[in-house]
């Protein structure tokens, strides 16, 4: 009987202790921290000035979103800056490109052109060149060739086991894709 009393006491106390810690507040909202919601390509040309094209993740598009179509002029040369943003929390937009630059050893961009004639070179400066001297592809130069329509697939790869820069458009072995977006592209 003595055991029973001890047990009853224990049973009475334990749920009490644990129930003190619970609260009924709403859980706080989580806005994804390292998700990439937007990829932008900014084209700068001495005659046409600067144009930015933005691809937004389907989960974060609003009704005004129109799929971007890059328009280039045949024979022109463009300096292209690629940027990545996290706009999952509209109050606090975040430029992911800085992180990519800081961890240039872990990142690499590839550009896959389909049905368009572009002469492509990597022009990265020290900020976006990794410790092995590989230009990771945030800054590039595009020379538009013959007229036509096609597309470009821009990929950001995290921790590839091998970064291949021949051809300049780039390829990887291993790693996982952090971003892979297709822009339609026309050369007029």
């Amino acid at each position: 009987m003595k055991h029973l009393k001890l047990l009853a006491l224990f049973l009475a106390i334990v749920p009490f202790i644990s129930s003190c810690s619970s609260d009924d507040d709403s859980p706080e909202i989580i806005n994804e921290e390292e998700v990439i919601t937007d990829v932008t390509l900014t084209f700068t040309n001495s005659t046409e000035g600067s144009v930015t094209y933005t691809y937004t993740d389907p989960q974060y598009r609003d009704d005004s979103y129109v799929a971007p179509v890059i328009s280039l002029t045949s024979g022109e040369t463009y300096e292209v800056e690629t940027n990545f943003y996290n706009n999952s929390d509209p109050e606090d937009p975040e430029l992911i490109t800085e992180e990519v630059e800081e961890e240039s050893d872990d990142h690499f961009l590839t550009y896959g052109f389909s049905d368009v004639d572009i002469e492509f070179t990597r022009t990265d400066g020290a900020n976006s060149t990794d410790s092995d001297g590989v230009q990771i592809g945030l800054s590039t130069e595009w020379v538009a060739g013959t007229t036509g329509t096609g597309s470009v697939l821009v990929s950001l790869v995290h921790q590839p086991t091998e970064k291949i820069t021949d051809p300049e458009e780039g390829a990887v072995v291993g790693g996982e894709t952090d971003a892979a977006v297709t822009f339609d592209l026309e050369i007029l």
Binding site: T37, Y55, S155, T177, D178, A179
Partner: peptide
């Protein structure tokens, strides 16, 4: 749980 299609995100 079975595949029902493909969803496109910014990661592909």
């Amino acid at each position: 749980i079975e595949p029902s299609g493909v969803e496109t995100t910014i990661r592909g």
